[in-house]
Amino acid sequence: MNMTQLPIIKDVYGFLGPDLMACVTGLLLILMFVPLNSAFLVWVERKVAGHIQLRPGPMEVGPHGILQSLIDAVKLMCKEMITPDLADKYLFWIAPCTVVIPAIVCFVVIPFSPIMQVRELNVGILLIFAFSSISGLSILMGGWASNNKYSLIGAVRAVAQSIAYEIPLLLSTMSVIIMSNSLKMSEIVAAQSPVWNFVWQPVAAIIFIICTTAETNRAPFDLVEAESELVSGFHTEYTGMRDALFFMAEYTAMFIGSSMAVVLFFGGWYGPFFSGIFWFVLKAYLLVFVTVWIRWTFPRLRFDQLMNFAWKVLIPISLLNLLVTAIVIKVL
């Protein structure tokens, strides 16, 4: 039976029109998916960390502790939200609100499968890059408004870091865009149907993954939080649900970064035997696993080394990669 024939759906459908209808349901799905996904990723992170460190991780709530992060979320919602006396009240309040905006908006253009995409935009990739930079702004706002020196250092580091890492990120994306000749997400995926871009662009793919790790402030680039130096960086003063929002944004950004890598380099929804959302989600979560795995293996870089690494290693290599790609495309 066609879902659109149901009376209530039909009414709504008639009222909104097909395009808007898809948007509304898509957004509702996204709003449901974002918190659940981050709860799941927190659990995955704790579980992987546990087993890497030869301990079981959360075990008590639910089978193998799978409900642990939901219970934690309930706890965080019940907690008092403390605003420090000397903090800038409005900025302090706005920062966690704005940090979830990119987390939600970026999902709009991600093509999970040929039909599962909320909105097809001609410049989908640009939208994601534009919005994901907002998180840098909210981190700066949160860190500045906290009026805490640790938070301030963390926030300043975050801004410098995102400037440094956006460049190689865009450069490595550029080489893919040159190849597929489009900024449309679904077309980029469609261009990879026989062979994934990863085969042609391994260097760009690795640079892209490194840069998304840095963009989402994950270890070994987690200087913004840097527990052993800055207590917990920009969200030192945040409590309760506000802290949880920062957390949610971090894990969602991680998923978006992995999804982007899947779209750009790992063939999107294409996979052996059949193609569809299954392959996309599987690949995205595998990449999330890789970032988690990296986090629990390496020490943290120092701030100047982080900058050196971006400006002296990643940018030259990605520029070189872009040049070679352009020449090869032109010649062939």
Binding site: H51, I52, L54, R55, P56, W293, W296, T297
Partner: peptide, 11 residues
């Protein structure tokens, strides 16, 4: 670390 991921836990 990947090797350790699949080893039995010690706790």
């Amino acid at each position: 670390t990947l090797k350790r991921l699949f080893q039995p836990i010690v706790t």
